[in-house]
Nucleic acid binder design. Structure first.
Length: 201
DNA sequence: ACTACGATTAAA
DNA sequence: TTAATCGTAGTC
């Protein structure tokens, strides 16, 4: 079993954490996916950050210590997965927008509503986890997974790759936050260049 | 109680 | 381009 990343990894500048999470492995109940796309949401100035405009109680994990999950429900049907960063008392988190399926693909496909016979289809494979709402469905992440300590939980954590891997990081603007005024165009979205599992926009 | 809307997705 | 769908928050 791969070792979970510790609190020190998350308790850093949010942009650094967002970039550093690319290529790491998201692991939950035996399902494994490589993180290929993230976004940073930082503090009370950032108008897109929930810590700024949602009530403190509804995004409480964001205000807590680093390394905790912040899962919330939106659009009436989808969950979003974030990892809390920076120090206790400062609201910031990294949104996991897309992963590449590594292990447990059959189960992911089943969670996404596909039949076993469809797993060989390349289009189906690429559609399993290539978006924030899709990957939470594939990994069966829901409200019960909110506010868990990912540095201590043996069933839900993020780990480093055992082998070294080099890739190019693309930096661009975040998605779906046109209401955030001057913060709409901050280049706080990061993804692995040429990876087919990055969400489309 | 009533209403508006969102860090999305899939189908048309 | 748009409907699906519901928790949260603001207003009546």
């Amino acid at each position: 079993m791969l070792k979970p990343l510790g609190k020190a990894f998350y308790a850093r500048d949010t942009i650094t954490v967002a970039k550093d999470l690319l290529g790491k492995y998201l692991i939950k109940d035996g399902l494994v996916g490589k993180i290929v796309e993230t976004e940073a949401y930082i503090g009370t100035e950032d108008k897109a950050c929930h810590g700024n405009w949602r009530k403190k109680e509804t995004c409480a994990p964001m205000w807590g210590p680093a390394g905790f999950s912040y899962v919330y429900f939106t659009y009436g049907m989808y969950f979003m997965l974030n990892i809390v960063s920076e120090k206790d008392g400062f609201p910031a988190a990294v949104l996991i927008r897309a992963v590449e399926p590594v292990e447990g693909i059959e189960k992911m496909a089943k969670n996404r509503g596909y039949k076993a016979s469809e797993i060989g289809n390349l289009k189906v494979l690429k559609n399993l986890t290539s978006g924030p709402g899709k990957l939470t469905q594939a990994f069966n992440i829901k409200k019960a997974d909110n506010n868990l300590d990912l540095t201590k939980n043996p069933h839900f954590y993020i780990a480093k790759s055992s082998k070294k891997e080099s890739f190019e990081i693309v930096k661009t603007t975040r998605i779906g936050i046109n209401y955030a005024e001057e913060y709409t165009h901050k280049p706080w979205r990061f993804y692995i260049k040429n990876n087919p599992f990055v969400s489309k926009f």
